[in-house]
Amino acid sequence: METNKRYLVGVFDDEDVLLKSVKKIRNSGVKIHEVYTPFPIHGLDEALGYKRSRLPIAAFLFGITGTTCAVAMISLMLGYDWPMIIGGKPFVPIPDLVPVSFELTVLFAALGMVATFLITNNLWPGKKPILFDSRSTDNKFIMAVDLSKNKLASDEITSILRNFGATEVNTKLVEEEVVV
C-alpha cells in the first residue's frame, strides 16, 4: 500500500542556529522526523534525543570473533592436523600466533562493523534515497517534520520553525510504502 505523506521541510543556513533551535523546537511540542546535514554536527544526535550508537560493541564482538578464529585455525592446523617439527620448537608457538591473530582481529572488526553500519542504516548500492531537499548534501541544513505524526497544525509548526531560525519552510509530499 502506498500513501502520500505530507512533510514540512525547514531549511537552515547555519549549523549553530540549527543546533540551538533543535531543542527549542522539540520543547515547543513539534516532533521532528529527522535532520539532514551536509556534514556531521557534533551534539546534534543528542539534541534530537538519539541514543548513543552501539556500533563500538559490534566492532568489539567482531574483533574477538576474529581473534578466536585465527587462534583456533592456527592451533588446529599446526598443532593437530599436521604438526611439523621446526627446529624442535613447540608445535603451537604462542608468539608466532600474534601477527596473524592481530591482523584477522582487525580485518573481522573492520569488515563486520562496516557491514553492520551499512545494514542498520539501510545503505546499499543503487538504493534511492528520500531527499527532502537536494541542497542537504551541499550547503543547507534540512529539518523534516512529519505532519501526520504531529498534533499541531501545519501553520503553527511553520511559524515555530521560522521563529527558531529556519530561512525557508516548504511542504513536501513523499510517496512511501507504509511500514507495518
Binding site: 556534514f39 546534534l44 544526535d45 534530537l48 538519539y50 542504516n121
Partner: peptide
C-alpha cells in the same frame, strides 16, 4: 548507497570513522 545525510546516519558514521581509525592505527 542512497546516502541522505540524516543526523542518525552521521552519528553512526562518526562512530564508524573513529573505530576504523582506532583499528587502522595499530594496523
Amino acid at each position: 548507497f542512497g546516502w541522505d545525510g540524516s543526523a542518525k546516519t552521521w552519528a553512526r558514521y562518526e562512530s564508524v570513522s573513529l573505530i576504523l581509525a582506532g583499528l587502522s592505527t595499530p594496523l
